[in-house]
């Protein structure tokens, strides 16, 4: 049971929250301008690090607000939570854009 510090309500048990996967993955500005590969990147590809991960949570059984947390996926320790709307704290690990998601060949 994680204890998650909702930026609006304070620390609450995990059972009050819903998980939203990686944070800071914006819905594409103009989806129609994307190639199928790029669109697949948005739909299906998220970082999956062993270590610090900026991720989204929603306080479903509380204020219903979405917010972001930085959590270590090895230790589960949450080092920061911050609102979706506010500034992004320094040092937050942003989604990888330098590593491509591929189409396998020969399939």
């Amino acid at each position: 049971m994680l204890t998650i510090d909702c930026p609006h309500c304070g620390p609450r048990p995990e059972t009050e929250f819903g998980y939203g996967g990686q944070a800071h993955v914006a819905y594409p500005e103009d989806p129609s301008a994307l190639t199928d590969e790029e669109w697949a990147g948005y739909l299906f590809y998220r970082d999956n690090p062993r270590g610090e991960f900026a991720e989204r949570w929603v306080h479903s059984a509380g204020c219903r607000k979405w917010f972001n947390a930085v959590r270590d996926t090895r230790t589960y320790r949450i080092s920061a939570t911050y609102t979706s709307a506010g500034p992004v704290p320094a040092g937050i690990v942003r989604p990888r854009t330098d590593v491509p998601h591929p189409v396998s060949k020969g399939a």
Binding site: G18, G20, R56, S60, R64, W66
Partner: peptide, 13 residues
């Protein structure tokens, strides 16, 4: 309801 909140808050604040 969760869906609406998610899109409203996280994509189109």
């Amino acid at each position: 309801l969760d869906w609406l909140e998610e899109w409203s808050q996280t994509e189109w604040p």
